Amino acid sequence: MSTNAYLSFLVIGVVLVLVDGQIIYRSGRRYLENSYGDPAAGASMTRLVTVLFHLATLGILALMSTIDLGDGIPGVVKRVGVLLLILAIAHAITLAVLSRIRGEQEVEAVVQRGPRPQQRVEPEPQRPTVTPAPGQPGTYPDVSPSLENRSPYSAS
Rank of each mutant, 00 (worst) to 15 (best):
Y36S: 10
S44C: 10
M45L: 14
V14N: 01
Y140L: 09
T66C: 00
L69R: 01
I93C: 03
S99T: 09
R47L: 13
D142P: 12
L95S: 00
R116W: 07
T129P: 03
A5N: 01
V76M: 01
V19M: 07
I93S: 04
L10N: 03
I89Y: 09
R29W: 12
Q119K: 11
I24C: 04
G135P: 14
G13F: 00
I89Q: 06
L16D: 03
P117E: 14
P115S: 09
I101L: 13
A56H: 04
G59V: 05
I67E: 03
V111F: 04
R26V: 08
V143T: 14
E104T: 08
Q118W: 06
V14G: 00
G75S: 08
G103Y: 10
T46A: 12
T94L: 06
P128Q: 04
L83V: 02
V143K: 15
P115G: 08
A155V: 12
G70M: 09
P145G: 14
R100D: 09
E148T: 15
L7N: 05
N149R: 15
R150E: 15
A41W: 07
L87I: 07
K78P: 00
Q105C: 10
R116Y: 09
P128Y: 05
T50P: 04
T66N: 02
L83W: 00
M45T: 08
I73K: 01
R127E: 11
E108H: 05
V51I: 12
L16V: 07
Q112S: 03
Q119C: 04
Q112N: 04
R113M: 01
G103V: 07
G42K: 02
E104C: 11
V110T: 05
V107Q: 11
G81T: 14
P132K: 14
T131S: 15
A96V: 10
A155Y: 15
F9K: 01
I86L: 08
G81E: 13
L147Q: 14
D20T: 08
V76K: 01
M45N: 11
V107M: 11
A133F: 15
V49M: 04
A92H: 06
R116A: 09
V11K: 07
G42Y: 03
G59L: 08
P152H: 15
L63N: 02
S146C: 15
L63G: 05
Q112E: 03
L84G: 06
Q126M: 10
L69C: 01
P137R: 12
Q136I: 13
E106L: 08
R29G: 07
G81C: 10
L63W: 00
V19Q: 03
P125L: 08
